[in-house]
Design a protein around this nucleic acid. Structure first.
Lengths: 114, 114
DNA sequence: CGGTATCCTTCCTGATACTG
DNA sequence: CAGTATCAGGAAGGATACCG
């Protein structure tokens, strides 16, 4: 069993992956299909997207719903437990916005509209 | 210039390093010497500790104070700007505590007393 | 459309030695 | 004490091709 030295390490184990916070920020706004997530994160590879989604699912943060149809359709959404991260996710987003403003670098931001 | 797709990526660029949140959680409780940080994080290597501290310093999150004496003494502390992360750090810690409790895994936690 | 498998690069670790 | 340097090995992440 894994051993931590301070509790925050447990949080990082769950949301510390390179793309997990970004994925959760998108899912916080609502259910998304795999292809939607991919489009919202142009720089993520298919492999990493699947991998990070699986780990979040295994930790009970997100829910995976498969529609048995052709072509396939898979939807991801936050679980109730995952929603307990909403405050943190909001604060992380807000801090990022302020950080960008502070550096007069709003031009650094490209927002892909939903 | 770096391009982001959503603001939270800017936050992750600053505190997304493998050990940065843990370091910041320790510094939030007060100024620490290098050796203290090393003791609080037994699993971090000297190299990574120095590296993560440098990056945090470059981003204006922490302050490095060198005392010109023998043996050398170096102290690290949060800057005012770094303190703007305090709420986030607290929430991350709290969530980790709840997560550990939920999994009935308080035994997973080893706290090294200051 | 969603996911796997393979290969490759980069980052991180561990150990050790060395400097001011 | 704090930091740098080196090098080997492992883990995490990325690029590409392929499958149902």
């Amino acid at each position: 069993m894994k051993q931590y030295h301070i509790p925050v390490e447990a949080t990082l184990d769950v949301i510390g992956g390179k793309w997990k916070v970004v994925i959760l920020c998108h899912l916080k706004k609502g259910t998304k299909r795999t292809s939607e997530l991919k489009r919202l994160m142009p720089n993520i590879t298919q492999k990493m997207l699947t991998q990070q989604l699986r780990e979040l699912e295994d930790d009970g943060i997100i829910q995976r719903k498969v529609y048995n149809q052709v072509p396939p359709k898979v939807e991801y959404s936050l679980t109730d437990y995952g929603s307990s991260l909403n405050t943190i996710l909001d604060d992380l987003c807000t801090w990022g916005e302020c950080h960008l403003e502070k550096n007069n670098s709003t031009s650094m931001l490209i927002t892909i509209e939903d």
